[in-house]
Amino acid sequence: MSAGRPLSRRGAVLRHLALAPIALFALAPFLWMLLTSIKPPEEIFLDTIRLWPQHFYGLENYAAAFTKAPLGRFLLNGAVVTASIFLLQAAVALPAAYALAKLRFRGRETVFALVLLCLLIPPQAVAVPLFLLFFQLGILNSYAALIVPFTISVFGIFLMRQFFRTVPDDLVDAARIDGISEFGIVWRVMLPTALPALTAFGIFSVVAHWNDYFWPLIAVNAEHLYTPPLGVVAFRNEEAGTSYGPLMAAAAIIILPLVLLFLFAQRRFIEGITFTGMK
């Protein structure tokens, strides 16, 4: 509120008094999830508030989470699906973004207009026809069903094009004179210079697809293909009301990879996710 002027001591205290309850609101579901995940059942079903368990039951709960449901499998599925999606998105988007940013060819404006048009389409809008298409092709209930719809990221094309436009033309020309082909330029020249932007896009992509629930819910119903969100819901549907400890342990495990990643690369993370909003 008062940029440039240091707060008085009273102001500083008031600031923390205002921010601390909001921080508690933001963290409460996480804290309660973690605390519950280390409590024995009898302490979970208490009708008084007890924050810290009297008996530490974490090992049992986390072990149960892995045995009552194939949690490891869900995590593996999540890793396979998100990694494949990102790699394919990059493989498709980078060449297109390079052509749109650096090559002059008839039809370029039309292609870019199509990209902008596709940017308007929310993913849920294409669910019905894609479901029917995949049903006809017989590829529902497969990794392909989870991955294929997201192989094209028009957002990725748009973002990388914007970034490539900032790369000097001289660099591209130098590469051509040095004898690098147009395909080679994408991978040998543009990609290395675009690593920060690609990392941010990667974080955006991985977070979006690790957390996605809508499409996996539609595309697969075989347990061995469940992604983490599907897995944790299935877990809850079977166990809710009885074993909250293992359920909270499972939920905690599923959010753990992203939270860890976030703690390691906070700045890039915030950058990557807010890309959606900024551009």
Binding site: A26, P29, F30, W32, M33, V207, W210, N211, Y213, P228, P229, V232, V233, R236, L247, M248, A251, A252, I254, I255, L258, V259, F262, F269, I273
Partner: peptide, 12 residues
């Protein structure tokens, strides 16, 4: 909360 899996947090 922005990046944590919403489904897992909904269960919490």
């Amino acid at each position: 909360p922005v990046m944590a899996t919403l489904i897992a947090m909904a269960i919490s």
